[in-house]
Write a protein that binds this DNA or RNA. Structure first.
Lengths: 351, 351
DNA sequence: CTGTTAGCGCATTCAA
DNA sequence: TTGAATGCGCTAACAG
């Protein structure tokens, strides 16, 4: 416990012991070429001996920039977002940056707290992995000249445009409806979390478009959108939605706006001994890992998460390094993963 | 884009405009009492007008400490750890600290990179949510006087003792075996991830103890422990383990060392149309959210995650603030959550 | 090649 | 109550 009172060794300490100037130590530590081998060795040896570790706080202050990047997600427990964290974090770490992960729970106040904190910490950039509830925050980042990119949303604020990586969710919903139709299912119900961001709005709109496109408006196409102020977990929401939908008659298929909700749907249908897919087929959205584990395994819309992350971080680095050629808006395409909950069969043909 | 070139306003700027000294601004910003209302107002107004946000990098350098805490987990995708992140992050945020989340994938090199980075960043403390693979890292933290607590492991290194929060995993395994026995099941198989930390070792040891205690050594109690150098995901591991176990005869129950593995077990048994729990009952460990969603829902050993986090952060704060009365070792008790995969029935009675 | 010097933005001691 | 002065640990001109 004696050590506890000792201060961490600084460049000054190394300089004193090695008999050189502190500036020279700095040169050596930072790998400057113009240093004689003898001095270099002496400095590195004493640094080693003292167990020297550079103080990044001081370095950052001096350089007026940090090697830290903030990642903002709404919910680390949602594997869709934890997957984003995983990919982003790896890319960032491999470029020798460090990550601040901010978990906002879609709460506007928490978002604000984190944005302010990131600005205070002078982060080099921010990756926002969903549409912020508190849209003022986009402005704040912009005003304080913090580079940022948004995945799955557009800032849509005058003078605070930022590069965004979008997924063609309307197409995703179309793929789902199309698949139901190919199975011979025409009465399709839709359930969704509250529409608190662009991704969920687009999925809903895409569903409506597809229904119209296939001329299914009169085929009992029904919709359940959860209210914004509910306190339920996402899975419970699917459970509740299923009850709601069934109370108005049994559809041929249920399309859930997220896998989390689809899990609730499956849970409820299993409880009610309603056969999936024979009685009701189910399609989800996100392709989270568990969608392949649940029984029946879930047919779902897959988003190219890794590509989204790579594009997002690439763009962010370009802004940070002022590389110029950034595209303000990239749109990636989703695809459908067909599993047991809505397999590749034609119901009509089977009957 | 004109703004882009402007520098963020500093205390000096405020001082110049408000006609006071930079020191006075510092006093006002930090809420000193001994400042006249007039000056206070003038300073705060110009700060507001300029959109001043304090530079934490500078403040941290001056105060020689930061308000940042590191959280180290092996895998953000594992909901057991993301739950820990969620609780810890909330507690930390509410105490106005900021979180560095480090995702190591159990990789010794990544662990080392993160530990060095955290030391460089001068974090106020670190919470390690599992047993580090690279045990040298404990030493490094100690040598650099970074307060840290370990959840679910003991440092076990001479001179680098740190407070730890443990779960009585031997008891957890006992609960599982006891439940199997209460169901009339005596031939119990065990499968586990590689034993790369204390938690997994204790669970295994607890299983063996329980088997002995109930006199089941000769009842086909069999074990499958995955090799350390495999590349499989945790769920696949359970899948493989099931095949391995079945190849040596059908047990009455399978106890998996983690829910992730149990999911793989259930997946494989479902595929083989082996009825759960009628043919084989299954018990997992961790009580992750999905254990209640999967079919059949999973009987599992629950760990008091929130309590563990609260105790861990409390202890860390005590060290940071030198509060004295810390207990170096807390052990919390697990409990069993009974669901469909191993329900509360007596097989013998039913037959 | 190495030393001298001057801050980065802020907190804090000491005077006034 | 406020101002002047100092330095946290480091980088980066500029000199020599």
């Amino acid at each position: 416990m004696n050590q506890k009172t000792e201060k961490a060794p600084t460049m000054k300490d190394i300089a004193r012991i090695a008999g050189v100037t502190q500036a020279t130590v700095s040169y050596v530590i930072n790998g400057s070429e113009d240093i004689s081998e003898a001095v270099k060795k002496k400095v590195l040896d004493t640094a080693e001996k003292l167990g020297y570790i550079p103080n990044l706080v001081a370095r950052n202050l001096k350089k007026r920039k940090t090697n830290t990047i903030g990642i903002i997600v709404p919910d680390v427990m949602n594997s869709y977002y934890s997957e984003m964290i995983k990919y982003n974090e790896r890319i960032i770490r491999e470029s020798d940056y460090f990550t601040f992960i901010c978990n906002t729970m879609h709460d506007a106040q928490i978002e604000d707290w984190y944005i302010i904190s990131l600005i205070q910490q002078k982060v080099a950039g921010v990756i926002i992995c969903y549409g912020l509830t508190n849209r003022e925050c986009y402005k704040k980042l912009y005003q304080h000249h913090i580079p940022f990119v948004v995945i799955d949303d557009e800032t849509g604020i005058e003078g605070a445009e930022a590069p965004c990586v979008l997924v063609n969710h309307k197409k995703g919903s179309l793929l789902a409806v199309k698949h139901f139709v190919s199975m011979g299912i025409k009465d399709i119900a839709y359930c969704s979390e509250p529409l608190y961001n662009k991704a969920l709005c687009d999925r809903y709109e895409g569903f409506n478009n597809a229904i119209r496109e296939f001329g299914l408006e009169n085929k009992r196409g029904r919709v359940y959108i959860a209210k914004e102020d509910n306190e339920y977990e996402k899975i419970e929401l699917g459970y509740i939605a299923t009850n709601e939908i069934l109370s108005r008659g049994k559809p041929g298929g249920i399309f859930a706006s997220t896998d989390q909700m689809a899990f609730g749907v499956i849970k409820r249908l299993n409880e009610l001994k309603i056969a999936i897919p024979q009685d009701i087929a189910v399609i989800g959205y996100d392709n989270v890992p568990f969608s392949s584990i649940i029984s029946p395994s879930l047919t779902t819309i897959n988003q190219p998460i890794m590509k989204m992350c790579i594009h997002g971080t690439d763009t962010l680095y370009k802004i940070i390094k002022r590389d110029g050629s950034i595209d303000l808006k990239a749109t990636l395409e989703p695809n459908i993963i067909i599993r047991q909950s809505a397999p590749k069969i034609n119901k009509l043909a089977v009957n």
